[in-house]
Each structure stands twice: as C-alpha cells, then as structure tokens.
C-alpha cells in the first residue's frame, strides 16, 4: 500500500539554469582540455585561442547560471566557506571557481600575448592557467554526473557509474562541435567528435537495454522524449554523419549542430527525469 500515491521523495527544486549550467560548464571544461592538448600538440593558435575563449566564456557564464538558481544568490560565496570532499556540490563549486579564473586568465593571456607581443610573463601565466583550466575542466565536465548520481533520486543514483562518462562525452562533443562551427576543421576535432558520439551511442544502448522501472523517466513522458532526443542527437546521428559523410563539411557542421543540441537536451532531459523520478509515488531511494 502506498500513501495516497504521494511521492516519498522531494523533487529537485532546480530550474532551467541548472541544465543550462551543466551544458555550458561541460562544454567549457572540455574546451579547456582541447585548448591545452591542441597547444601542446602545436595545433593552430587560432584553434587554441578559440578553445580558450569557449572555456573562458563558459567559465564566466556558469557561475552566473548557478548563482541565479540559488535561492539566496547573494550568498553564493557561502559555497566557499568550506570544502567538503563528500559533497560533489562543494567539489564542483571550488572546481568552478578555479576553472573560471584559470580559463579566463588563459584566454585573456592568449589575447594579451597577441596584442602585446611575446613578453614573457603573460605567456607563462597564460600557459600555467591553461594547465589549471584543463585539469579543472576535466572535473567540471564530469563531476555533474557525480553530483546528481550521488543523490536519493532513483533514476540518477541508479546511473551514477554511467553519468560522469555520459556527461563528459556530452561536454566533449559539444566543445569540439562548437569549434567546428566556428570554422575550425582540424581532423582531430572530427576524431574527437566521433569518439564522443560513439560513447554517447554506447551510453544510449546501455540505458535502453536496461529494463529497470526506475529508469522509466528516461524513456517515458516528456522527460523520456527529451532524453531520448538528446541521446539521438548527440549519439547515433552525429556518429553516422561523421563516419559516413565525414568528408563533407556540411555533414560535419550538421553533426556538430546536432551534437550541441543533443548535449543541451541531454542535460534538460536528465534533470526532468530526476524530477519525474523523485515525484513518482512509491519511488524509494536506494
């Protein structure tokens, strides 16, 4: 017997800013990694610069989104009162602060470097910042999976092992797709995008193949539609386009756009699924 079919759990109170942040932060984090790898590999400085700018822009937008979702935005700084390893939100907040500063600094350094000409300190600072932003970027684009996975919401916690990979791949796909849409055609970008889309496809297959009723919100209702659309747009569709028609720039641009949309929808879908999961009567935490 359930209690008047009332939900046992509380639904997440987060509004649109949070999926938006997951998307922006995920892409920015991955972009920082791309920037660092690209520079280390001696790739086109424009690519490096643009990747740095994506990271920096994301690093600037993310806190804004997060803060505006807080019930008491003016108390954002309370996030930095303590550092709690056991709280992914705390880890994430510190990571984001480090990332935003580092990504901003490295983007600014890159620009300043170009404007001022190779005076040493700027470049050194910029490169150091890049390392930091890449390191924190790795965390930023994956911790959100831990954040929602380590909760009482069944659809999230059941997938705690999948979510960081899922979100990481989603962020990477989005980041390289953005660079592609900015006109960069480095083969590496396509390769990375293929990897991301392949991962997303695999994640989708895993989710679809599991019959656990706790996963219903990923498959049914509005949240199911959005998650599935997100999965298709960031997994099989770009994968097919890139593998089958990878030579066509147009196809790659479509794949990129699809991936970005898919990444955003994925985050919206997962959060909606969380709401539906927590809100369904009889849903019991595990």
């Amino acid at each position: 017997m359930s209690y008047y079919d009332l939900p046992l759990l509380k639904s997440p109170v987060w509004t649109w800013e949070v999926p938006a942040y997951f998307f922006v932060g995920g892409a920015a984090g991955a972009a920082a990694v791309v920037a660092a790898a690209a520079r280390a590999a001696g790739a086109n400085p424009a690519l490096v610069r643009d990747a740095r700018w994506i990271a920096a822009a994301g690093g600037a937008l993310s806190p804004a989104l997060l803060i505006s979702d807080l019930g008491r935005p003016e108390r954002f700084l309370n996030m930095l009162r303590v550092f709690k390893m056991q709280s992914p939100m705390s880890v994430g907040a510190w990571t984001l602060v480090a990332f935003s500063n580092a990504a901003g600094a490295s983007a600014f350094a890159a620009t300043a470097h170009r404007a001022l000409g190779g005076r040493l300190p700027v470049k050194v600072v910029g490169d150091a910042a890049e390392v930091v932003s890449a390191a924190t970027g790795l965390v930023l684009s994956t911790y959100t999976g831990v954040l929602i996975g380590a909760t009482a919401v069944p659809v999230w916690s059941r997938n705690v092992s999948l979510l960081p990979i899922h979100f990481g791949a989603s962020g990477v796909g989005a980041a390289v797709s953005m660079l592609e849409l900015m006109g960069h055609r480095d083969r590496a970008l396509n390769a990375i995008a293929i990897g991301a889309a392949a991962t997303e496809t695999a994640v989708g297959l895993v989710l679809e193949s599991r019959g656990d009723p706790a996963l219903d919100p990923l498959k049914q209702g509005w949240s199911g539609s959005v998650t599935r659309a997100g999965g298709l747009l960031s997994g099989p569709i770009p994968l097919a386009l890139r593998v089958l028609a990878g030579r066509s720039i147009a196809a790659r641009r479509i794949a990129a756009a699809s991936t970005i949309a898919g990444s955003l929808l994925t985050r919206i879908g997962w959060l909606a699924a969380g709401r539906s999961s927590a809100g369904s009567p009889g849903a019991s935490p595990d």
């Binding site: 759990l9 509380k10 639904s11 997440p12 109170v13 987060w14 979702d69 807080l70 019930g71 008491r72 935005p73 108390r75 954002f76 309370n78 996030m79 709280s87 939100m89 954040l147 929602i148 909760t151 009482a152 919401v153 999230w156 969380g274 927590a278």
Partner: peptide, 8 residues
C-alpha cells in the same frame, strides 16, 4: 544559500 542540493 538555497543551492537545493540537500533536497535531493
């Protein structure tokens, strides 16, 4: 600060 994380 109303982050809402405790809720979930």
């Amino acid at each position: 600060n109303g982050c809402g994380y405790c809720v979930v």
